[in-house]
Nucleic acid binder design. Structure first.
Lengths: 215, 215
DNA sequence: TAATAATGTAAGGTATACCTTACATCCATA
DNA sequence: TATGGATGTAAGGTATACCTTACATTATTA
């Protein structure tokens, strides 16, 4: 009924959507997976038939209750494995994500819960993302929406894409990093970071995936 | 180049073969996987083309050096995950095997070695099988070949099949268990176990997969 | 409102890994 | 040495998940 491909779609839909109600355009999934429009469309139809998603043609997909539950369980597994990899095996946080993408498909409910116990029921993954079932308590907003004040802190990086992670790593940015926001531009966000006085332009691609808050 | 199916075949060939030289008949693989003759044949041809195995028509397959190396790496991953599951997550040893079958495909060399470190470089899996690269130091022989004396001890169970594990579990047998061998029969082995005075007949299927030694 | 861009979908193709049926070949042994 | 059982293999089929090309429909905007 449910296989790895479908789980990957579920996870992507959950992470890429802006909120619970607004449908996620298929074009976003297409870009995320780098699959063709046709392939994404086929898979979404299939998932709609299985009542994991509701498909609104020309608008996008939303998760059904079943779909959301499955996505949350998946995300929990994913983030617990990330914690295991970083905390117990000292794998760098940007690598842990990729490995967890494979492990998340290969662990039963029981194993997952025992893993959570072993790790001391952690509340956050190494990227700062909440570990479900507490996703609803989510704080912050994407950096490209931040209008609050000049200063904010990175809460988490989502969704995690290899080149975004690499770039953030180069910039020395991660959960907890302080960012001084100068202004929003149509192509991204002007910021100052660390001890640099030179402003840096973070392209939308990055700016939209870094979740920040004022504290 | 190498995917999960092929890894499963490599693992099966490594575990089912009696020794390094004697080819493993394809019928054994067919029976193990419960695949059709044609499917097994196709896959073996493919693996032969990739020089993972040498195929001797009408006799069977042997692993090439490359194939054996890959099989050993796989077995190491498998058994380390088993140890992790039993030692750190308290998963019963007969369940651990099944879960490890999925995890073994999803761990890089690096993660595997860190896992080995975390577990304290264990030398044996929970079933008593040596964790490669020390497989060469393998002791014992299958119970159905045991002619030594009346008494022997279970070293390990190999290859692990669900119903064999279940049956052994029912009998209270595992690595270290003492077995009193009465005699070998064409269909299996007559034994006495535990405090029972009544002899029990272990069918060949089980008798051939339990490795024993006198100490 | 007409043109353009985005999205949907039909048709047909690829690769993987399985299947069945049918027939060919080899090996052991009676 | 003839034969039956085991093994090989050709032909064609299924399902999954991807692909491209081509054309249809809808939404946006100029």
């Amino acid at each position: 009924m449910m296989n790895e491909s479908m789980e990957d779609y579920l996870g992507a839909i959950y992470r890429l959507r802006s909120d619970r109600e607004t449908p996620l355009p298929l074009s976003q999934l297409q870009e995320f997976f780098e699959f063709s429009r046709v392939s994404v469309h086929e898979m979404i139809q299939k998932m709609a038939r299985q009542e994991l998603v509701i498909y609104h043609p020309y608008y996008g997909v939303t998760l059904t209750d079943t779909g959301e539950k499955a996505a949350l369980a998946l995300l929990r597994r994913h983030r617990l494995w990330e914690r295991f990899l970083t905390d117990m095996l000292a794998v760098p946080w940007d690598e842990a994500h990729k490995i967890a993408c494979r492990l998340e498909h290969a662990a039963s409910e029981k194993v997952t819960e025992r893993l959570a116990g072993l790790l001391g029921e952690p509340q956050e993954c190494p990227h700062g993302g909440p570990i479900p079932p507490t996703e609803s308590l989510q704080r912050g907003e994407p950096l490209n929406h931040f209008k609050g004040g000049a200063e904010c802190f990175i809460l988490r990086i989502a969704p995690e894409r290899p080149h975004v992670l690499r770039r953030l790593h180069e910039l020395g940015l991660g959960p907890g990093s302080k960012i001084h926001v100068i202004n929003q531009t149509p192509t991204g966000t002007q910021v100052k970071i660390g001890k640099d006085h030179q402003p840096i332009h973070l392209p939308m691609e990055i700016s939209a995936t870094v979740w920040v808050d004022t504290h």
